[in-house]
């Protein structure tokens, strides 16, 4: 109401909600923090444009960014395939097993990422419970693309599954029930009713999981230091080449991630929005 216009400044001030003002002031601390961080790195990079361009055209940097995004996409693809059915089961059943499964899924949320990395490494190393049989069919995780993917996957699962589960829960069971009485099998009702109605949540879950995946560092380097994902590369350059080089890569990563998120948001503005009344 404070900004509803009209009247003098004094009148506006008198109408303003003191709680909202106080909260805004307190909350802005965080916004300022983010803004300053962004501004600092942007300004330093723009001040040294030729160097930034040199780093941006470095094939190792480009490859690393592509590798990171590619691995993130692979993770999203795996999650769509395996996480979606899991989310549906969790959303639609009410067994005691569910809370156990949900707790298991959430484990990466409450663990230091190095711990997650060790868990993934132990499982997927060449002598590991899953690493060994995969090695038989020629898939090795240590210092290889599959290793990056499993590490990223492990830490992204809760972001995808929880978001999509909430989306499925928001689709009223009644709607699904009606579809079934009208002749749709449960699977068709899922495909034709539940899926389109939770498209937005599936997208949100995918974006969250992708963001989480590409930002993973600790878990990834445990099993796959090479090929270097961006986080590894930045850390490596930081320890060898210093701040100048690593912050240039960091800035490029910011640009790339930002543009992808922006494009995604704009492209999917209307996806799955049926409840906005005309």
């Amino acid at each position: 109401m404070a900004d509803s216009g009209g009247g003098s400044l004094w009148a506006r001030y008198k109408r303003a909600d003191s709680t909202l003002i106080a909260f805004s002031l307190i909350g802005s601390t965080l916004v300022i923090l983010s803004f300053l961080a962004l501004a600092t790195i942007t300004l330093t990079q723009l001040a040294d444009l030729p160097f930034l361009i040199k780093v941006a055209t470095d094939t190792r940097v480009i490859n690393s960014i592509l590798l990171t995004f590619g691995a993130g996409l692979t993770v999203v693809f795996i999650l769509l395939l395996f996480g979606t059915p899991l989310a549906y089961v969790l959303a639609r059943t009410h067994s005691r097993v569910n809370s156990l499964v949900e707790a298991l899924i959430d484990i990466p949320l409450v663990l230091p990422h190095t711990v997650a990395g060790i868990m993934v490494y132990l499982l997927f190393m060449q002598r590991g419970l899953l690493g060994a049989p995969f090695k038989e069919i020629g898939i090795v995780f240590e210092d290889a693309f599959p290793g990056i993917v499993v590490a990223m996957l492990f830490v992204s699962i809760p972001f995808y599954v929880n978001t999509v589960r909430e989306g499925f829960q928001k689709v009223p069971v009644h709607i699904e029930n009606v579809a079934r009485t009208l002749g749709a099998t449960r699977f068709r009702a899922f495909i034709l009713i539940v899926l389109p109605l939770s498209a937005r949540q599936i997208l949100n879950g995918s974006v969250l999981a992708w963001g989480r995946a590409i930002s993973e560092f600790a878990a990834v380097i445990m099993i796959a230091y090479y090929p270097m994902i961006v986080s590894t590369l930045i850390y490596y350059r930081f320890t060898t080449g210093g701040l100048r080089e690593s912050s240039a890569i960091a800035f490029l990563m910011i640009l790339a991630s930002f543009s992808i998120f922006l494009v995604l948001r704009i492209a999917t503005r209307y996806l799955g929005r049926y409840d906005d009344r005309v």
Binding site: P172, H174, I175, N177, V178, A179, R180, T181, L182, G183, A184, T185, I193, L197, Y274, D275
Partner: peptide, 16 residues
């Protein structure tokens, strides 16, 4: 889906 029974809920449950 094989019972041939029509169902109308209180909230109508139309497909949005």
């Amino acid at each position: 889906e094989q019972r041939g029974v029509g169902l109308v809920y209180q909230d109508y449950s139309l497909f949005p």
